[in-house]
């Protein structure tokens, strides 16, 4: 009689090793198990990555040699897009591809006017930007607190833009769901084929536990 306790981990490791080996010899399995998820990860990665940046365009004749501009360029949530003329920037803003257009002017009276155009097509990022900019403006005004009129004035304008439709929220969910179900069906498919070819039956003739078999293929 054997006294050594049966080691399920060892069974699991050898199963994993075998299924990986078998997979690399089957080109379609490689595509389904590796390339597809990779593509999806990349696609979602790009969609996800851009959501952390607020895209801002400065108008052409905007003053860029001031405190506010420097502060904004230093924030890493804000990315400043250059080489866009006013009309192009405005139409991008309407579509929500960029989140704000900013102009900083110095009036003859020495006052600084910051006009911030945000869009209804991108309300969340627009309002985050508003908070950021008004914080910077307040800081600057505090530094000039002895002045009669505030040094810097912030004008906020929100333009119309494409509003989000329900599909915009449902679509990522649906994609996620279809990915998930593809995964579940894929696993089920492997098991059905292993069962039909009686591979599973031969496995169950060894001391391996059902749980071990299932967890390997997940």
């Amino acid at each position: 009689m054997k006294d050594i306790k049966y080691n399920h981990l060892r069974a699991m490791l050898s199963l994993t090793k075998a299924s990986l080996k078998a997979m690399t010899r089957n080109p379609s399995a490689v595509v389904f198990n590796l390339v597809f998820p990779l593509i999806f990860i990349l696609v979602f990665g790009f969609i996800g990555g851009s959501s952390f940046k607020i895209d801002v365009v400065f108008e052409k004749n905007s003053d860029t040699s001031n405190y506010i501009y420097r502060e904004l360029t230093n924030r890493n949530t804000i990315s400043i897009i250059k080489n866009l003329d006013y009309d192009a920037a405005f139409s991008e803003l309407e579509k929500g591809r960029i989140d704000a257009v900013i102009n900083i002017e110095n009036s003859p009276s020495g006052q600084q006017i910051v006009s911030l155009k945000t869009t209804k097509a991108s309300p969340e990022r627009g309002s985050i930007l508003k908070v950021i900019i008004s914080e910077i403006v307040n800081k600057q005004n505090l530094a000039y607190s002895e002045a009669q009129v505030p040094k810097t004035e912030l004008k906020e304008i929100e333009i119309e833009g494409r509003r989000y439709k329900t599909i915009d929220f449902i679509l990522p969910g649906q994609l996620g769901f279809s990915l998930l179900s593809a995964g579940v069906f894929g696993t089920a498919f492997i098991f059905i084929s292993l069962r039909q070819t009686l591979v599973l039956k031969r496995f169950f003739a060894t001391p391996v536990k059902k749980f071990t078999l299932f967890s390997v293929n997940l």
């Binding site: 075998a18 080996k21 078998a22 997979m23 089957n26 070819t197 009686l198 031969r202």
Partner: peptide, 13 residues
């Protein structure tokens, strides 16, 4: 040790 009347082995190994 078991030899089944009908059994398969893991494919591609």
């Amino acid at each position: 040790g078991i030899q089944l009347q009908a059994a398969g082995f893991y494919p591609n190994l």
